[in-house]
Amino acid sequence: MPEAPGANPSYPPIGLVLAGGQGRRMGGRNKGWVEYRGRPLVEQVLERLRPQVDSIVISANTDIDRYRALGFPCLPDTRPDYPGPLAGIAAAWAHYPGHTLLSVPVDAPCLPPDLAERLDQTLAVSAAPAAMAHDGARLQPLFALLRPVLAARLEADLADGSLAVGRWFRDIGATVVDFSDQPDAFINLNTPEDLTG
């Protein structure tokens, strides 16, 4: 993929499905396997992500064998106590150093079909280390393209304690990409009530 002037070259981007949460608002259910419109969320996310990247890895801390049965590597966090999605990103870099990562959450079955393309176009002409989506109303930092130059910084920041995702992306100087033309693509399903839509 194109790199900004002065950026370190990287291997092809890897799609990273963030499915490592505890699903507290889903009553403790593994969110990736919750069915929405007759199919598990993870299958719908993979279907939309697969055409956009060459390879995919899943970040999860439960049902790991079940996720692997889908045909993709599944990586648990390297830190205890569910420190959040940034730990999943760090785990992916630990296994795939030097790769740019395209992260998406497992509870967003309508993610944009041009997510990778638009984030890449912006990052390619930017000196920023990452690009994240904005749906027109709010930032969507888990929909992000991250350069591998961030790997060491993320490890150090996680060692200092759990991180708020949005704040971390602002602190690293991530650039923002406007997706206000398709806000419904970022609807995430957090509670049982959301599944009835």
Rank of each mutant, 00 (worst) to 15 (best):
E3L: 13
A4Q: 06
G6E: 11
N8E: 15
P9S: 06
Y11H: 11
I14M: 14
G15N: 04
L16I: 13
A19M: 07
G21M: 06
G23A: 12
R25P: 12
G27A: 10
K31M: 13
V34T: 14
V34G: 10
V34M: 10
E35T: 11
Y36M: 12
P40S: 09
L46T: 06
Q52C: 03
Q52I: 04
D54Q: 14
D54R: 09
S55Y: 04
S59F: 10
A60S: 15
A60F: 04
T62I: 03
D65V: 01
R66K: 11
Y67Q: 03
Y67T: 01
F72I: 04
P73Q: 05
C74P: 00
D77L: 02
P85D: 12
A87E: 15
A90F: 03
A91K: 13
A91F: 07
A92Q: 11
A94W: 02
P97W: 08
P97E: 11
G98A: 11
H99F: 10
H99I: 06
T100Y: 05
L102S: 13
P105G: 08
V106C: 08
D107L: 08
D107W: 06
A108M: 15
P109V: 02
C110E: 02
C110T: 02
L111D: 05
L111Y: 04
P112R: 04
D114G: 12
A116S: 14
A116G: 01
E117R: 13
L119A: 07
T122D: 09
L123E: 05
L123D: 04
A124Q: 12
A124M: 11
A124C: 12
V125W: 00
A127D: 13
A128K: 00
A128Y: 01
A130Y: 01
A130G: 01
A133K: 11
A133V: 09
A133P: 03
H134C: 15
G136V: 05
L139T: 02
Q140T: 10
Q140R: 14
A144W: 10
A144Y: 07
R147P: 00
R147L: 12
R147I: 00
R147M: 03
P148M: 03
A151F: 01
A152L: 01
R153D: 15
R153L: 07
E155F: 03
E155N: 09
L158G: 03
A159K: 02
L163Q: 13
V165R: 07
G166Y: 02
G166D: 15
W168R: 09
F169Y: 09
G173Q: 09
G173V: 03
A174K: 00
V177R: 04
V177K: 05
D178H: 07
D178M: 07
D178W: 05
F179P: 04
F179K: 08
S180A: 14
S180W: 04
A185E: 08
F186P: 05
I187Q: 14
I187N: 11
N188K: 10
L195I: 02
T196M: 07
T196C: 08
